[in-house]
């Protein structure tokens, strides 16, 4: 019969044994191995170890190793670890020239609402508008009670039209009647930007339909 009973490998033959006893230095060396499986094993073991040194190494490796599957495993490990060190390690990546790297940093930060939230106000003052845009993107996933207040602050204060536009996109979904004055003010603040008129108008219409 051509369809035959297969056998999976026994867990003991296959699984996690190899990296169990490796030192931190050996794992860091493993990250540069030419063997993809060894690199992934090292990433996972560093994730299990945790702690700031491991997090720093993983954040740096995200920059060096452009292999997508390795990057995905690092992202999963960093998101699982969370904490201040991860946020700290990822912030510089938002300024990278590598679009894929910027976006993966955002994806991880989106998973860490409680670690990002306390720093949000300070971060939204970053001089680089692109970084502020990314942070508003992170807000999208924060599920934090202050999200609307932060967005209102952005559309009221930020001078960059694209930062405001990104915030308006999110207010379209989560804006309530308390956003109305700020939405109106944003339209007045950017009279020559049809996009602002369009998206703030859209948000107002949606909120209005609720009232």
């Amino acid at each position: 019969m051509p369809i035959m009973k297969p056998k999976t490998r026994e867990p003991s033959e296959a699984a996690d044994a190899p990296n169990g006893q490796l030192s931190f230095a050996e794992l860091v060396e493993g990250l540069t191995s030419g063997d993809h499986a060894v690199r992934l094993g090292a990433v996972r073991s560093l994730g299990i170890q945790g702690g700031t040194p491991a997090i720093d190494v993983l954040c740096q490796h995200l920059v060096i190793d452009s292999d997508r599957s390795t990057r995905d495993v690092i992202a999963v490990e960093l998101a699982r670890l969370g904490g201040e060190a991860v946020v700290e390690g990822l912030m510089p990546l938002l300024r990278s020239d590598d679009a894929a790297l910027r976006n993966i940093a955002i994806d991880i930060l989106k998973e860490l609402p409680t670690d990002v939230a306390p720093r949000m106000e300070a971060l939204l003052d970053d001089p680089d508008p692109d970084v502020r845009i990314f942070l508003v993107n992170v807000l999208e996933a924060l599920r934090h009670p202050s999200v609307e207040d932060w967005l209102v602050a952005v559309i009221t204060m930020d001078t960059n039209v694209n930062v405001v536009g990104t915030a308006l996109d999110l207010l379209n979904e989560v804006g309530s009647t308390s956003s109305v004055p700020a939405l109106r003010a944003a339209i007045a603040r950017f009279p020559d930007e049809p996009f602002v008129t369009f998206s703030a108008g859209n948000a107002l219409r949606r909120i209005g339909s609720a009232a």
Binding site: G165, T166, D169, E173, F195, F198, S199
Partner: peptide, 12 residues
């Protein structure tokens, strides 16, 4: 990825 940008460009 931004809904309002897609809506805006769609309208135009």
């Amino acid at each position: 990825d931004a809904t309002t940008v897609r809506m805006y460009h769609r309208q135009i």
